[in-house]
C-alpha cells in the first residue's frame, strides 16, 4: 500500500509517495529524490558515509526508514553551500586536503557540521577524533580531516562572535 510522507530536504518541501515501506532515507535520497551526494558505504550503520542531519542531529541515513521521517527536516551535503558560497567546513576540507577519493567526504563533512553544532568537543583533537569516529575513511585522510574540523570550528566561532557584536 503506498504511503505518503512529506519532508523538508535542504529547505525544499518534498512530498513523496513511497510504494514500499522498506525504503531507507538513504535510498529515498539517492534513488528517488536524485540527491546522490550522500553515499552508501555499508548500508548497516557501520561506516558513516551516509551521515545527514535530521532536525539538526547527525544520523546514519541508511538506518532510518523513510516512513518514520514524515515531517522531518533533512540537511544533506547538497544543501550545505549557501548562494554559491562553500560552508566553512567544506572550504576547510579543501584547504587541509581532508579527503582523497572523496567517497566518505559528504559523510565526514555532515558529521563535522553536526559535531561543531553540538559544541561538545571544542578544540580538543582527542575529543574531535572521538566524535568523528563513526565516519570511516579507507583512504586514510584522517590527518587532514581533523585539521579541517578544528580550523572550521575556529572560523565559525569567530564569525559567531562577530554576529553577536553586530546584534
Amino acid at each position: 500500500m503506498p504511503l505518503s510522507i512529506s519532508l523538508v530536504v535542504n529547505g525544499v518541501r518534498k512530498d513523496v509517495v513511497l510504494e514500499d515501506p522498506r525504503v531507507t532515507l538513504l535510498d529515498l535520497l539517492r534513488e528517488r529524490v536524485g540527491l546522490t551526494g550522500t553515499k552508501k558505504g555499508c548500508d548497516r550503520g557501520q561506516c558513516g558515509a551516509c551521515t545527514v542531519l535530521v532536525d539538526g542531529r547527525r544520523i546514519n541515513a541508511c538506518l532510518a526508514l523513510a516512513v518514520s521521517l514524515d515531517g522531518a527536516d533533512v540537511l544533506t551535503i547538497e544543501g550545505l553551500a549557501k548562494g554559491g558560497q562553500l560552508d566553512p567546513v567544506q572550504a576547510a576540507f579543501i584547504a587541509h586536503d581532508g579527503f582523497q577519493c572523496g567517497f566518505c567526504t559528504p559523510g565526514q563533512i555532515m558529521s563535522a557540521v553536526g559535531l561543531i553544532r553540538e559544541g561538545e568537543a571544542g578544540d580538543d583533537p582527542e575529543r574531535i577524533r572521538e566524535g568523528m569516529s563513526g565516519n570511516l575513511c579507507r583512504c586514510g585522510a584522517y590527518v587532514g580531516i581533523i585539521e579541517a574540523v578544528r580550523d572550521a570550528r575556529k572560523q565559525l566561532a569567530i564569525s559567531a562572535n562577530e554576529d553577536r557584536r553586530v546584534a
Binding site: L35, K39, I77, E78, A81, F93, I94, F99, G102
Partner: peptide, 21 residues
Amino acid sequence: ITRRDGVLKVTGAATYAADNH
C-alpha cells in the same frame, strides 16, 4: 595546489558510478 576536483567532492557533486540513474 589544492585539488582541482575539491569543490565537486565537498559539495556532493562528484559523480561516482552508483550515482548514475
